[in-house]
Simulated scan of single mutants.
Amino acid sequence: MDDHIQISSCGRTLWVHGTDGSTVGRFSTIFGMDVHTTFQQQMDGANQCLHCTHQQPTRADWIEFCRLMSVHHQISVDDQLMYPETETLGETDAEPVLFTP
């Protein structure tokens, strides 16, 4: 697994850390996602949130989180890390699917 990625022991939350060590992303199968600017960008005046939700996410939200990590931070997040049992990618109207270890 990439050094930028950390997964909770229960497998329900994933954090992404930027090259400067700041946490730039969090995805929770219960609480949604946070995509943030880096610490340095915030110190330079940027807003913290790039894309934040506060509701139970869908598979489509997870795919979007992975895309946003690549777009904003050039960090590749494997889209199978949080939903390994799901084979169909890129669904836009998917029902919520929780990973239960």
Score class of each variant (00 low, 15 high):
M1G: 15
D2S: 13
D3P: 07
I5R: 09
Q6R: 11
I7C: 15
I7Q: 15
S9D: 12
S9P: 01
C10H: 10
C10T: 14
G11S: 02
G11K: 00
R12Q: 09
L14G: 10
L14D: 04
L14R: 07
V16G: 08
V16N: 10
G18V: 08
T19Q: 04
T19K: 12
D20Q: 10
D20E: 13
D20F: 13
G21I: 14
S22R: 12
T23F: 01
V24S: 02
G25K: 10
G25P: 00
S28W: 08
S28C: 08
F31S: 11
F31I: 08
F31C: 06
G32T: 09
G32C: 06
G32D: 05
M33P: 00
D34V: 05
D34L: 04
V35P: 08
T37R: 15
T37A: 13
T38F: 05
F39H: 09
Q40S: 11
Q40R: 15
Q41A: 15
Q42W: 06
G45L: 13
N47C: 04
N47Y: 06
Q48V: 12
C49Y: 14
L50N: 04
H51G: 00
C52I: 11
Q55G: 06
Q56L: 12
Q56Y: 03
T58I: 08
R59T: 13
A60I: 01
I63K: 06
C66G: 02
C66Q: 02
C66T: 11
R67E: 09
S70W: 13
H72G: 10
H72Y: 15
H73A: 02
Q74R: 12
I75D: 05
I75F: 07
V77K: 06
V77A: 03
D79E: 10
D79R: 08
L81A: 14
M82E: 09
P84N: 03
T86C: 12
T86E: 11
T86A: 14
T88E: 14
G90I: 10
T92A: 01
T92C: 02
D93V: 05
A94W: 00
V97C: 00
L98Q: 03
L98H: 04
P101M: 02
